[in-house]
Simulated assay, not measured.
Amino acid sequence: MTSAVAAVSIFPSSLSLLRLPSSLLKVRVRVRASASMSSSDHAVVPAVIVGGGRVGRALQSMGDGRDLLVGRGQPVPADFAGPILVCTRNDDLDAVLEATPPSHWNDLVFFQNGMLEPWLESKGLGDADQVLAYFAVSKLGEPPVDGKTDTNPEGLTAAFGKWAPAVAARLQNANLSCKVLEKEAFQKQMLEKLIWIAAFMLVGARHPGATVGAVEKEYRSEVASLIAELASAAAGAKGIQFDEGIEERLCAYSRAVSHFPTAVKEFKWRNGWFYSLTEKALAEGKPDPCPLHTAWLKELKSI
């Protein structure tokens, strides 16, 4: 199922359909048909939205007026049946969990960037719903812009978990793309976005004032080397293999959001995960799997 769903976005030509087994062809056609539905075909499931920032307000605007918006620290009601869309900063997640009745923890849908797996597992939420949001909201109240790229014109946003279809329907109502993936395919795409954040932010920080677009255009060799290193480390740590073309996919996304500034921040959730792989390897007497990453973090005094 996972490979078939992921293939919809990567191989759109009719010729590729001929290469698929008939059992997967049915899945492919069904997903493609869902993705091409008009917004009027999607029923929006009312949600609790935690966080009144740009993303939270944008998600609320995609609803039908039945959503409940709660601010940081406000309690999530126990009598609300539906998804709980968490749109806060990563460092606020502990507070969000404390404000949510444990009976509704399996309704939480996390929209955060970065590596959440260690935190989720520490809370017993290893299979929690997640969304990789490849759309941008420039200012509060402005409509979101889909992060489609020249390598993935169908869009990159993806959702995983029991509420993933409801999230996809909400986004599609706003003419935004969203794929529903199984866990393995989602994890690979999550790691790709983590590599993008860690690599482009670190290289950009070495060149003050550089946007992600400038990194892609002017420092391509630096970021390409770092992408390759981080991808190899992530693949080894998770026992996965990334699809070919990861460098070009990540560079294409940088071209699509070229105005984004760069900075090494939220270290625990971003570059910190790769540095934890370094610390583990060195503690075991093994070579650093991310020597370039480590050297540049030291250069910036981030470690």
Rank of each mutant, 00 (worst) to 15 (best):
M1Q: 12
S3M: 05
A7Q: 12
V8R: 06
V8G: 09
S9Q: 08
I10H: 08
L17Q: 09
S22W: 04
S22E: 05
S22F: 06
R28S: 10
V29E: 11
V29Y: 02
R30P: 01
S34I: 06
S40C: 11
D41V: 06
V44E: 07
V45W: 08
P46E: 03
A47V: 06
G53V: 10
G53H: 05
L69R: 01
A78G: 12
A81Q: 14
A81T: 15
P83G: 05
L85F: 10
T88Y: 01
D94P: 04
A95G: 04
L97W: 02
T100K: 01
P101S: 11
S103D: 13
W105A: 00
F110L: 15
N113K: 07
L116Q: 14
E117T: 14
W119P: 04
E121Y: 03
K123T: 00
Y134T: 12
V137P: 06
G141R: 07
E142G: 10
P143I: 13
V145P: 03
D146P: 13
K148P: 05
T149V: 05
D150L: 09
T151N: 01
P153T: 11
L156Y: 02
A158H: 02
A158G: 07
W163F: 14
P165Q: 08
A166H: 12
V167T: 10
R170I: 10
A174C: 13
L176A: 09
K188E: 12
L191M: 14
E192A: 15
I195Q: 02
I195P: 03
I197L: 12
A199K: 02
G204T: 05
H207P: 12
V215A: 00
S221C: 12
A228P: 01
A231I: 02
S232A: 15
A237V: 04
G239F: 06
Q241E: 14
E244V: 11
E247W: 03
E247S: 09
E248C: 00
L250Y: 00
S254R: 01
A256H: 03
A256Y: 04
A256W: 00
V257F: 14
V257Q: 09
P261A: 14
V264H: 02
E266P: 05
W269Q: 05
W269G: 00
G272L: 07
Y275C: 07
S276Y: 05
E279M: 15
L282A: 08
A283T: 13
K286P: 09
P287K: 03
P289V: 03
T294G: 02
A295H: 07
W296T: 05
L297Y: 04
K298H: 13
S302F: 03
